[in-house]
Design a binder for these strands. Structure first.
Lengths: 259, 259
DNA sequence: CCCCACCTAT
DNA sequence: ATAGGTGGGG
């Protein structure tokens, strides 16, 4: 059986909000190391990979591997029933028909309980190779969100060009063109504002802004976002959570005429 | 070539926000004295006149007269990409295809650059006579905005009646009628709250509230607004900016049955 | 000057 | 239902 208690029901709420527009139904794979989710979006351009490590829960118990096939729209509806400070416990039997969500108010004077029916979902398990990226950019997640939104006013796509000096987001559209260039810099007072560029080789790739804007819904999960690029390889957009948990998005670059 | 650096990108943002609903496309006329704009609204009832003097920029350089024909919707999109404290530099060649806007963050760790394609716009240059007005009312811009909004709940038009004692904004509508009367007064502590009436002859004129409310979008540009009236003559609504720069709106009075 | 919460508008 | 804008508070 699974029993996983999350101090912040809010965390799961934000995670699901950030991915529910990309993926309708997917498996939450539970085992003793935590709860994982991997799914491609309908058009197979983007991939979501979530990992909530057992350490992010307290307590966490999962005796056997269980795949919980969940419709994310249903899950969203139920998660909206949590109040801001609620504590969430996820429960499931070993061969479950339903997943059980329990919300407790911090003062434990209110207890809400929901069962969501599960579905069988074909497991297309995706081995994601751990890549060494040519460029790794760490920056404030709100800034990345802002850049993507701004440039979307001009174009469908953005090119991300990274050199030792900085990273340049650029686009062209009907009304004109635009670019935002960030230099790496440290802010000792507010490390959340740091922009860090770790580069082994210059990179330049083009991506769909629609997807990036979508990924940016996760901005509330982490003050910093990590963009990992290598030529010809999907971009990795990572929001790190506590305890090595994470929410990652992969996006295939546009190539040639697509740009 | 033109190169004009504005410490507050925000200023242009507010100016364009205030006029973009009146005018779609217009020329920004640049010469060594600054950047000017004059345009009538589509229905030729209102006229906008902006003057940003060269002294409002630092530095300001404009070798020749250049007319930059800009679509204000495009310009708005680009100005939205400026962050609050950004410094804006406008650049254009002598016979330009595009105008270039550069936003620098105060800490200059971020630099955004946009090109907007220009268009050819027929210059209907409008000689605006410098009039001696019968009544000049200076009042807090937020108060004028509030009055126009309030009265719009009742009617399409407002009469502005100015005597030595004060100014009365009045309207009649289906649900009833309303009026707001201001007496001139000084507040030594907070001169922004002054209401001043400079009158050579009593005036009473009626105007479309829709337009006035529209003009009031400029309220953020200046704490005070100046209303200049003479019988049979368009109302002048002026927002004074630093360095003798200004944003002015003219509105023809309604006459006879129109009221 | 920044952050948060409310509200409105799509 | 969601996202952006506005207004108020720290």
């Amino acid at each position: 059986m699974l029993e996983a208690r999350l101090e912040q029901a809010n965390l799961l709420k934000k995670v699901v909000d950030a991915i529910k527009d990309l993926v309708q139904d997917c498996n939450f794979d539970c085992n003793d190391s935590g709860i994982a989710l991997q799914a491609m979006d309908n058009s197979h351009v983007a991939l979501v990979s979530m990992m909530l490590k057992s350490e992010s829960f307290s307590p966490f118990r999962c005796d056997r591997n269980i795949a919980l096939g969940i419709n994310l729209t249903s899950l969203t509806k139920v998660l909206r029933c949590a109040q801001n400070e609620d504590i969430l416990t996820l429960k499931a039997e070993d061969a479950p028909d339903v997943v059980n969500l329990v919300f407790e108010s911090a003062e434990s004077d209110r207890l809400s309980e929901y069962d969501i029916k599960l579905m069988d979902i074909d497991q297309e398990h995706l081995g994601i190779p751990e890549t060494e990226y040519a460029a790794v950019i760490t920056m404030p997640s709100t800034e990345f969100q802002r850049i993507c939104r701004d440039l979307m006013a001009l174009s469908e796509s953005v090119s991300i060009e990274c050199t030792k000096e900085g990273v340049k987001f650029a686009c062209q559209g009907d009304i004109g063109s635009g670019s935002v260039t960030l230099r790496s810099h440290q802010n000792v007072e507010k490390p959340d504002l740091n922009v860090e560029i770790d580069l082994t080789e210059p990179v330049s790739l083009t991506f769909s802004l629609k997807y990036l804007v979508n990924f940016c819904k996760a901005s509330g999960l982490s003050s910093q976002v990590k963009l990992c690029l290598s030529n010809e390889v999907p971009l990795l957009v990572e929001y790190a959570l506590s305890n090595n948990s994470y929410l990652r998005f992969y996006l295939a670059p546009k190539i040639g005429d697509e740009e």
